[in-house]
Structure formats: C-alpha cells, structure tokens
Amino acid sequence: MKALLPFLAVVFLVLLVIAGVKAAGLYFVFGVLVPYAAAAVFLLGFVYRVVKWGKTPVPFHIPTTCGQQKSLPWIKPNGIENPSGTGGVVIRMLLEVFLFRSLFKNRKTKMKGEYLTYAWAPWLWLSGMAFHWSFLFIVIRHLRFFFQSVPVPVQAIEHLDSILNWGVPALYITDVIFLAAVTYLFLRRVTLSQVKAITLPADFFPLFLLFGIGASGVLMRYYTRVDVVGVKELVMGLVSLHPAVVSGIGTIFYIHLFLISTLFAYFPWSKLVHAGGVFLSPTRNLSNNSRVVRHVNPWSYPVKVHTYEEYEDDFREKMKMAGVPVERE
C-alpha cells in the first residue's frame, strides 16, 4: 500500500503528459512553461531550505566520532575519525560526500550460534555509490544538450560511457548501472523486513520517479527514437532564454522532460535535499574541539545570577548571630 500510491502518482504524471501533449497538443506548456517553473521552484526552494537550515541554531557541539581524540602529545590522534581542526573536517566531509564513508562502515549484527557477530554489509553503500555516480555521469553527459558547442570534458565522459560500443546508438554503461541500482534500492525496501517497516511513501516516490526518468530515457535512446537535434534546439532555446516550441519531437521526450521537471520541483521539499543537507550536518561539519574552544549555545541569554558573595552581604549579620561561618567579616 505504501508503494502503490507513489507508483500510481508516477503513472498519473506519465498519463498527464500523454493527455496534454498527444491529445491536447500543449507543447508550449510541457516544453517551456513546466521546465521553467520546475527550475524556478528548484532554485528558490533550495536557497530557502539552506537559508532556513543556516538560521537554525546548533545548541550543542555534536560531532560524531569513532577514533582517538587529540589529547596528550604521546597518544596518537585519529585526525579523520575525530577531527580536531578544519583540515580533518574537510577531509572527512569530502570522503563522506564523494565516497559515502559512513555507509561503507555499516555492520550487520547477528547471532551466529552462541556468538554475536558483526559482518560487513556493504550492499547499501555499493548500490548508493552506483546510483549516485552513474547519475552524476548521466547528468554530465546530458550537458551536450546545453552548450552550442559541446565542451571537451562532456565529450570525454560520453566517450568513456559508450566505450563498449555495443549497438547503434552505443549502449551507455551508466544507463545499465543506474536502472540496476534504482531497482536494488527499491527491492531492499520491499524485501528486508526492518527496512520495509521504516519505509514511507515519500521513500518510494523518488525511486519510482527516478526509475521512470531512467526508463523513459532508455526507451528514447534505444527503442522509440526521437529527433535529438530537435531536442537540442528546444533545450538551447530554454537555456538562452529564447524559448521556442520545436515540432516533431516524440511524446516520449515530453514524458522524460516532465518527470525530470517533477524531480527538480520536488527536490527541495523532500528527502532528496540531503544533497545540500550533508554539508550542514552538525555531526559531520564540526570538529571535535569542545575541550579547546567553548561552544556557546545560541539559545543562551544572559541569566540574572545571585552570587554567594551577594548572598553573604544580604545575610551576614544574621549568619553571624546564628554562628554560621562567613568568608568576609
């Protein structure tokens, strides 16, 4: 049930495009208005989210650590697992962002007979890496539609991606990896009971959406071909802010474009915004220097205190009369 609703939502989006483009002929709406609106929602939403996070105070100094803290000179500190300065934080953050190091360290706790065992379980890390990196390659490859003369690095990545030279047009390795990874990420949510229990419709929707984007792209490239020169003309019109409707592009392209627009518009308001959030995680971006630098809670306000000296001043005579020792006569 948790999967059905997001699935139907994606199916509905596809049917919406078929109805809008094929039946009603709203090429301007689906080719120009929707992409522009999605881009605007994405950019403004992303800024809104990051600024909102920036305004959120961090009351406590909470870096997560799993290594020796810097202490006495003869104890070797672990500069990455327990960073004591900015350098360590930067290295740890880069490893987290590019290699998902915390996922890599995942262990599965299990009883093996009478022993408690901790087995390395890298499958989420592996599929996550496969998904994110192939997606990055796919996005870079698509930049050939965004520049009048295609930049050399984009050409190089495309060449690398199609290096198997299977078929015409050549198979992209990342297309296979992307769809396989998304499929695995979906399957783990419906087969592993613990993961299934904590899965929400908002976890399934992006997976179906991404699968829809990948599948429509694969269909468009390898089966239902479209006029790519027309597609590039449309995209160049959009990025040069002189949008024009280009005729003769198949409906499958508008499905692809609409699902991507949905992804972009959905991005800042969903779990997908972890792309920005990872940089703003206090457990990751703080160095463990709380014994060197005092972390002031931004919520703290000046508290009115009544010191012992003031207390003694107030009650000195009475204290003396009662025989209570005083510090100052």
Binding site: L43, F46, V50, Q148, E233, M236, G237, V239, F279, L280
Partner: peptide, 25 residues
C-alpha cells in the same frame, strides 16, 4: 553557507548565462 550556496547556484545556472544572448544556429 552563502559562499557554498553561491558556488552551487553558479555551477548549476552556468549553461544559462553562458548561452544567454548568443545565437543558436
């Protein structure tokens, strides 16, 4: 935060200000 955000926005909108005003023959 604003520096990071500016770099991100600059990168992602690069195709727009690279292409805007140029002819698309």
């Amino acid at each position: 935060i604003i520096a990071g955000l500016t770099i991100f926005l600059g990168l992602i909108t690069f195709p727009i200000y690279y292409s805007v005003g140029k002819a698309n023959p």
